[in-house]
């Protein structure tokens, strides 16, 4: 509440075309993906799916530039009061909370399989009768033997945490540090260190993604660790894959912030766009710590 006397009027934008464009874009995109996946599964030679998907993607890209462009213009036009700023802050924080819950679903699946379903399938514990499905199946984690290897060929090995994953942990944690340094520079209006630290953060993020790709190639080509190699591969790739997608998005956000900073946007007091991107980046970092501990080490 911006004080009883001095409240600025809350900015209510006039009509906007962006939401409906976003809706059309999303609809076309998911329709395209769905068509594509289904044609793939049905074994059709050709599919319109990719084309539809691509069109939807173009619409979405156009929308993102347009919508965020409008918001940036309004913000720089001085239309936003401190109260508006708080709305954005609440919005971004709850969005990140929703992302936390999205990851929670996959972490939950991992814990459930490791501590309940898996041991039961191996004949242990309360519901050990499940073992009669595949008598002789023994459960261990990492799961290097699946109940039905015909359908789900087990991996020959897994990724050791102390190679690339450890390196990636160091990279990502350092990137959180450099980003914080960038933020401090922003607060003091030190533009050059700001640019340097932010650029470094982006480079660290890209390096992370590069190593992640290398790890995936190694897993697929040399270890037989794939999406289809039983529940270990499924949880491994689902968790690290979605995390990787989030890192990509984070790098994108930070890059846009970098461009905006080059253009002279933001100042010591007003830089919520930058802060939102950095919140997101720290969130992605924290998820990685969880991944490193529960997916790779334990």
């Amino acid at each position: 509440m911006a004080g009883a006397k001095t409240h600025d009027p809350y900015y209510v934008p006039a009509q906007s075309k962006w939401p409906i464009i976003a809706t059309v874009g999303m609809f076309v995109t998911v329709f395209g993906v769905g068509t594509w996946f289904n044609d793939m599964k049905a074994g059709h030679e050709s599919s319109h799916g990719p084309l539809i998907f691509f069109c939807g993607g173009l619409v979405l890209a156009y929308m993102l530039f347009g919508w965020f462009g409008a918001v940036i213009k309004e913000s720089r036009g001085g239309l936003y009061s401190p109260q508006m700023d708080r709305s954005f802050r609440w919005g971004m924080s709850w969005f990140i909370f929703s992302e936390v819950m999205f990851f929670a679903a996959f972490f939950g699946a991992l814990f459930y399989v490791r501590h309940f379903a898996g041991p039961w399938l191996g004949g242990e514990g309360d519901k050990g009768v499940a073992n009669m499905l595949w008598p002789g199946f023994e459960f261990s984690w990492p799961l290097l033997n699946t109940p039905d290897p015909q359908k789900y060929p087990a991996p020959e090995g897994i990724i050791s945490p102390w190679g690339l994953p450890l390196l990636n942990t160091i990279l990502l944690v350092s990137s959180s540090v450099t980003l914080t340094l960038a933020h401090h520079a922003m607060r003091k209006n030190h533009r050059t260190p700001l640019k340097v630290w932010l650029a470094l953060t982006i480079i660290l993020g890209l390096a992370f993604l590069g190593f992640q790709a290398e790890e995936y190639i190694h897993a697929y080509n040399e270890l037989g660790l794939t999406l289809g190699s039983g529940i270990y591969g499924a949880t491994f790739f689902m968790l690290t894959g979605f995390h990787g997608a989030h890192v990509t998005l984070g790098v994108l956000m930070l890059s846009i912030m970098f461009i905006r900073i080059l253009k002279g946007h933001f100042n010591a007091d007003q830089h919520f766009g930058f802060e939102a991107a950095s919140w997101y980046w720290h969130f992605v970092d924290v998820v990685w710590i969880g991944l490193f501990v529960f997916v790779y080490v334990l």
């Binding site: 399938l121 595949w134 109940p147 359908k151 789900y152 289809g228 039983g230 529940i231 689902m238």
Partner: peptide
Amino acid sequence: TSFFSAAGG
């Protein structure tokens, strides 16, 4: 993937 398939664990 085999999240919901016991054959893959």
